[in-house]
C-alpha cells in the first residue's frame, strides 16, 4: 500500500516508447541513405545496435542497476543509431564498435547513466572518433552513379570486416570527402563557389544523395513535432540561426559563402536539428532556454563549418552548447503561476 498513492492513473507513455518513436522517425532518412549509398549503412547500424545493447547491459550489471527495465528503454539503441548515422558507413567494423562503446561506457554510464549525462553521448562518440581516427572518418561512400567503381554489398562487407578491397581497387576510388569538406578544400584553393558547385558530387541544393537523406530526416523530424515527441523550439531555432548566419555571409560575399540552403541540407544539420539537439537529457528544459541553446548551436555550427578545422560543426556545436545548458536553464526559469517577477531566488 505504501507505494500506492495518487495519482492512481497515468498516461501509458513510456521512455521506451518515446525512444522507439524517435527511431521510427529516423527510418525515412535511413531508407533514402540505402537508396543513394547502398546498404552498407545498415551494417553500421546493426553493429552499433549490438554494441550498444551489449555495453549497456554490461555497464548496468557493473553498476548494480537492474538490467531489464533499462535495456528495454531503447535509449542505448538510439544512441548507437545516431552515431552510426554520423560516421562513414564504409568504415572498418571496429570504428563503430569502439565509438558506440565509448558513447555508452564513458559518455553515458560514467556520468550516472540514463538521465544524468551532461553531454550528448552520440556526439561525444563522434568527437572522439574524429579526433582519434581522422583518416577513416573522412572516407565517405560515393553516391550511386558517381564513383568510378562501385563495390557490391559483399565486397563492402569484406572491406568492413577484414579490410580487404577487391584487387586493383583503391579506397580513394570508392570513397570521397563529404560535400562540405570538398567545398572547404576548394574554397581554400580560392575557387569561386559557382565553379565548385559544378562538380558532379553536388546536387540541386547540396551534395548529391546526402541532400536527399537530409530531406528524409526533415520528414521524420516533422513527424516528431506533429506527434508532440519533441517541441518545435529546438529545430526552428537551430535551423533559423544556421540560415540567418549563413544567409548574412552569403549576401555579403556570394562568391565565397554558399547559400544557407546548402548548409541546411549538408552534413548533419537536419539530423542535428531534429534528432541530436533535441535529446532531452542533455538539452535545456525551458522553452526560452531551448531557443537560446539551439540558436547558439546553429551559430556555432556555421562558424565551425566556415572557419573551423573540421568539415562539419554540428557535433562540436552540440557539445559546446551542452556545457552551457545549466546556465541557460538557470537564467530562463519561467514565471511561476501567481508570481510576478520570475522564479524568485
Amino acid at each position: 500500500m505504501a507505494a500506492f498513492f495518487s495519482p492512481f492513473i497515468s498516461k501509458p507513455d513510456t521512455v521506451a516508447q518515446i525512444m522507439f518513436r524517435v527511431m521510427l522517425a529516423l527510418l525515412p532518412g535511413i531508407a533514402l541513405y540505402v537508396w543513394y549509398f547502398g546498404p552498407a549503412i545498415l551494417v553500421s547500424i546493426a553493429l552499433a545496435s549490438i554494441t550498444a545493447l551489449a555495453t549497456e547491459a554490461a555497464m548496468l550489471k557493473l553498476r548494480d542497476r537492474p538490467v531489464a527495465p533499462f535495456l528495454k528503454d531503447n535509449s542505448a539503441l538510439l544512441t548507437g543509431w545516431l552515431l552510426a548515422l554520423s560516421i562513414p558507413p564504409l568504415a572498418p567494423w571496429w570504428l563503430i564498435v569502439v565509438g558506440t562503446a565509448f558513447c555508452i561506457v564513458v559518455a553515458k554510464h560514467l556520468y550516472g547513466g540514463l538521465g544524468n549525462n551532461p553531454f550528448n553521448p552520440a556526439m561525444i562518440g563522434f568527437a572522439v572518433l574524429i579526433v582519434s581516427f581522422p583518416v577513416p572518418m573522412t572516407h565517405w561512400l560515393t553516391p550511386h552513379g558517381l564513383g568510378q567503381i562501385e563495390l557490391s554489398f559483399l565486397e563492402q562487407l569484406r572491406y568492413i570486416f577484414i579490410g580487404s578491397l577487391p584487387p586493383g581497387v583503391t579506397l580513394d576510388a570508392i570513397t570521397m570527402a563529404t560535400p562540405l569538406d570538398t567545398l572547404k578544400t576548394h574554397l581554400h584553393l580560392d575557387e569561386p563557389v559557382k565553379q565548385i558547385f559544378d562538380m558532379p558530387i553536388y546536387g540541386r541544393l547540396a551534395g548529391q544523395g546526402s541532400e536527399m537523406v537530409s530531406w528524409g530526416f526533415l520528414a521524420g523530424g516533422l513527424y516528431l513535432i506533429a506527434a508532440r515527441i519533441i517541441s518545435w523550439h529546438i529545430p526552428v531555432a537551430y535551423l533559423g540561426a544556421l540560415f540567418a548566419t549563413a544567409g548574412l555571409f552569403h549576401l555579403a560575399d556570394p562568391a565565397h559563402y554558399v547559400t544557407p540552403l546548402f548548409h541546411w541540407f549538408s552534413g548533419a544539420a537536419m539530423l542535428g536539428a531534429f534528432f541530436i539537439l533535441t535529446d532531452p537529457v542533455t538539452g535545456p528544459t525551458t522553452n526560452k532556454g531551448k531557443l537560446i541553446f539551439a540558436a547558439g548551436a546553429g551559430l556555432l555550427t556555421y562558424l565551425i563549418r566556415a572557419f573551423g578545422g573540421f568539415p562539419d560543426g554540428t557535433a562540436f556545436a552540440t557539445l559546446l552548447m551542452n556545457i552551457c545548458v545549466p546556465l541557460i536553464v538557470l537564467y530562463t526559469q519561467p514565471k511561476v503561476f501567481g508570481k510576478k517577477s520570475g522564479g524568485e531566488r
Binding site: A2, A3, D64, R65, P66, P69
Partner: peptide
C-alpha cells in the same frame, strides 16, 4: 509524508 520508495533499487544494493 515518507520519502517515496524508489522501485528501481535492486534489493541487494
Amino acid at each position: 509524508w515518507r520519502y517515496p520508495v524508489y522501485a528501481l533499487q535492486p534489493a541487494n544494493t
